[in-house]
């Protein structure tokens, strides 16, 4: 390779690298209005695998644990049928995500939500402005997994 062509390659590499760096430095926060349908989930158990796989950490089997996590301030997500998860930032007029009963009442429900969608660094976030429909809890995961975790099973009353 001749000196001029090396020089051209270096110019090109510098340009590509600089472009890559600057694009990662700019936050993508433009909102799009979306309507999505999915299950309200506890994101920690779902993503970490701490309680089992992603089928076990949804639906009826994991409902009590989802209540514990929502009360504990773990972010709630909306998981669509194709596996996309939207981190819920705000919910239909509510401001205090961790303190409202709404976030407890809708755990494991399948809802259709309309709102603003933000995508940044590979993570979907949503501000739910309107719950268009709520189908309730429909994923009967207890049929396969019983209680997740097992200690969520209520103790027999003596």
């Amino acid at each position: 390779m001749s000196a001029p062509s090396i020089l051209r390659s270096l110019f090109a590499a510098t340009f590509v690298a600089a472009t890559t760096l600057s694009s990662t430095a700019i936050a993508v926060t433009e909102a799009k209005v979306v309507e999505v349908k999915g299950e309200m989930i506890d994101t920690w158990c779902y993503f970490s695998g701490v309680m089992g796989d992603t089928d076990a950490t949804r639906g009826t089997s994991h409902h009590t644990c989802a209540l514990w996590c929502a009360a504990g301030g773990i972010p709630v997500g909306l998981r669509t049928d194709d596996g996309e998860v939207y981190m819920v930032l705000k919910f239909e007029g509510e401001d205090a995500l961790e303190e409202t009963d709404t976030m407890m009442e809708i755990q494991s429900d399948i809802i259709t939500a309309r709102g603003k969608h933000y995508l940044r660094d590979g993570v979907n976030y949503i501000v739910v402005e309107k719950v268009v429909a709520n189908d309730g809890i429909t994923y009967m995961s207890h049929e396969d997994y019983d209680f997740v975790p097992p200690f969520a099973k209520p103790k027999k009353k003596k």
Binding site: T24, A25, I26, A27, T43, W44, F47, S48, C65, W68, C69, A71, G72, G73, I74, P75, M87, L89, A96, L97, E98, R120, D121, V123
Partner: peptide, 26 residues
């Protein structure tokens, strides 16, 4: 509200799900 950290090294927004406690704490 849910909080996160904008990482200085690459400007990535890191969403924090959990603290170090083992009993369902954000």
């Amino acid at each position: 509200r849910n909080l996160g950290i904008v990482r200085a090294a690459d400007n990535k927004l890191i969403t924090v799900l959990k603290n170090r406690q083992s009993s369902f704490n954000g």
